[in-house]
Design a protein around this nucleic acid. Structure first.
Lengths: 187, 187
DNA sequence: CCTTTCCTTTGACAATTGTCAAAAAGCAAA
DNA sequence: TTTGCTTTTTGACAATTGTCAAAGGAAAGG
């Protein structure tokens, strides 16, 4: 659980009492490769912190699996739309490696927000940072070519390429697997 | 200022004291068409609520203006990256019509967060909703054709088409003006 | 070690979209 | 109305990317 504490502290310090309360509300989840944390059609009731392993979020469109994010160590993971809106989502969250996470339920988290304002603050701040990242990704998607997006990914997250299959990376970049393969061979 | 109160209340109720404190911290800004609320290279120090009018956010890339959002009545407006990170941004925010906004400085907002926890909560909740919208936009950008994105825009925001020029809409959709013109003529 | 399965590459071709240039249309001020 | 400016449309062509199909490689399990 140290990793989570360190991760949170990087965003904003929290009080010891808030951390203790949070610790008590967390449940450890260990699941093998290729299992599902969240499946489409269900309400995602938990926010997770990924301590070890690797996941992807994807949904099905016209019979294809569309991967739109990857999660690695020290990332917060949830089906955001469903978790926030309390409605069933279209998203599946699948482990790509054996993974260990810490989870907290929506109810428990919101109870903690009432009791520990510094916890609510740090979550607000983390949300803001995740928003900025999403904004950057949208810009890249909107105004860069496939090759530029791939090169940007290479720079910012070289580890993705070692842990994720080509087809899934292509989907994440919004291009076909064949195109990515060709970009990669410098053609 | 009623519009702002109603808008906030739709997300989450706030106490009268929080509203009164917020009201006092707000400054009204009225600026004519084609003027700038934020310019690239500066730190955006304010969060705005757009009461009347219409704006766009854009940045310059290879000599082109890349529009990546529009703001209409009852939207919250800021150069999010710069406002949150306190660093100079690349974004310009320009009025497309004569506009009236209410603004609050970063410092004042954060002071209010310390004093009025329900205000921090409603901002957290608003952030979350804006995150969800951004996520939807990213999905559309990643996995839909230009035509589909245009048709989706027609459905969700028909008013955009009446108030914004074609070139700017095309930029927002991530396509060239000529392509959008051809899509529009049903070719 | 072999088999089976999955992942990646390659080829051929089609569809989409971009770029450049020019014409047409719309709009506002004189 | 005319003039001048901006926006939108159209044409021709090039570049990018997608699709389908097949072949080559890598990896996992028996």
């Amino acid at each position: 659980m140290n990793a989570l504490f360190n991760c949170i502290s990087q965003y904003h310090p929290i009080s010891l009492s808030a951390w203790e309360a949070l610790s008590k509300a967390l449940t450890q989840v260990s699941i093998p490769r290729n299992s599902f944390l969240v499946q489409e059609g269900m309400v995602c009731n938990h926010l997770y912190f990924l301590e070890q392993g690797c996941l992807r979020g994807y949904y099905n469109l016209d019979g294809k699996e569309i991967t739109y994010w990857f999660g690695f160590e020290n990332h917060f993971i949830t089906s955001f739309y469903s978790f926030i809106s309390r409605k069933p989502g279209i998203e599946n969250i699948q482990t790509l490696e054996d993974s260990t996470l810490w989870g907290i339920s929506y109810e428990a988290l919101n109870q903690l927000f009432d009791l520990h304002k510094d916890l609510e603050r740090v979550v607000r701040i983390i949300n803001e940072q995740y928003y900025i990242r999403l904004e950057e990704r949208l810009m890249a998607m909107q105004f860069k070519t496939a090759r530029e997006r791939y090169e940007q990914l290479l720079e910012s997250s070289p580890h993705i390429l070692r842990r994720i299959s080509l087809g899934q990376i292509a989907s994440y970049l919004g291009i076909s697997q064949e195109t990515l393969s060709r970009i990669r061979s410098h053609v």
